[in-house]
């Protein structure tokens, strides 16, 4: 079996795809708004579906969520994972409900649940995929989230590729310096070997990261991070760029209109509403 350089379905590809998701901001709809408004927009869509059982209303909300996802240019990897999860989860619930003697009512009841969960998930995708993590963390800080959160986000953003690379190196070291893996029955030894290498590789990784962390925390101290936690000036300076504009007001207005519209539409055209 000859090996070749693959552009898809290889470790390199996965690494690259992850980086692409994390760093190549696709500049969708939501990235143009003030991050605080985006968070608020998300919160509306995270709460409203739970206030109704009307399938029509929920369908409209779901459609709005789906539209927002399209406009936000969500990457294929994330979207694919979402659709796959939604479909299998629903099918699975149906199957089990049928097994326990459910009927159409059961299915419809479950449909409302799926729509609700789906709407919330779509809204979170639309809101957070195209939003720069740094901006999101700024929004959270301006809503008085702990400063450690904001630090965590930017630190993670900075470290991700580096620690991924380091881990890859260690795993490669294991691969090359260990006994070549035999395939075994149905190749079961291969996943087992991968799992073992993964766990073992965390041993050097933990030690190396501990050393790294020591310098980082020391540097944080000398660069005034703890000082900033006590003073308000740095925080307000950092957040100074957050400003609400007419564009943000428009988003709020459209959102309110859509939600109200969904409820009114649902009142007029209730679909398969059950009554007990």
């Amino acid at each position: 079996m000859a090996r070749k350089q693959r552009d898809v379905l290889s470790v390199e590809w996965v690494k690259l795809e992850l980086l692409r998701t994390a760093y190549a901001t696709r500049g969708g709809l939501m990235s143009k708004f003030d991050p605080r408004v985006v968070v608020a927009w998300y919160l509306v869509f995270a709460v409203v579906p739970w206030l109704t059982h009307n399938i029509t209303t929920l369908s409209v909300l779901f459609a709005v969520g789906a539209l927002a996802v399209v406009l936000s240019r969500v990457g294929p990897l994330v979207l694919g994972l979402f659709i796959f999860g939604l479909v299998t989860e629903t099918a699975y619930i149906f199957a089990v409900a049928w097994f326990f003697d459910g009927d159409v009512q059961t299915v419809m009841a479950l449909l409302t649940l799926t729509l609700k969960l789906g709407t919330v998930a779509l809204a979170s995708m639309a809101a957070f995929v195209s939003l720069d993590p740094e901006k999101l963390s700024d929004a959270l800080v301006s809503m008085h989230a702990p400063p450690l959160l904001s630090f965590g986000v930017s630190y993670g953003y900075r470290m991700l590729p580096i620690i991924m690379e380091e881990f890859h190196t260690i795993v490669d070291g294991y691969r090359l310096r260990s006994k070549p893996v035999e395939r075994g029955f149905l190749g079961w030894r291969i996943p087992a070997a991968v799992a073992f290498a993964l766990v073992r590789s965390f041993y050097p990784m933990m030690l190396n990261t501990a050393k790294r962390t020591r310098t980082t925390v020391e540097a944080l101290e000398t660069r005034g991070f703890t000082f900033a936690g006590e003073s308000k000036a740095g925080r307000s300076m950092r957040l100074a760029y957050l400003r609400l504009g007419p564009r943000d007001a428009a988003l709020v207005a459209v959102t309110v209109a859509l939600v109200v519209g969904a409820f009114m539409f649902g009142q007029h055209l209730p679909l398969l509403s059950r009554d007990f």
Binding site: V96, A97, F100, A109, L110, L113, R274, F276
Partner: peptide, 23 residues
């Protein structure tokens, strides 16, 4: 509890509580 809140009168829907428990 999400199922409970999300589905109208969930305990009356045939098979639902059992399925959720099983899942």
């Amino acid at each position: 509890s999400k199922v409970w809140v999300g589905v109208e009168d969930a305990e009356y829907v045939d098979g639902l509580p059992e399925s959720i428990l099983v899942i």
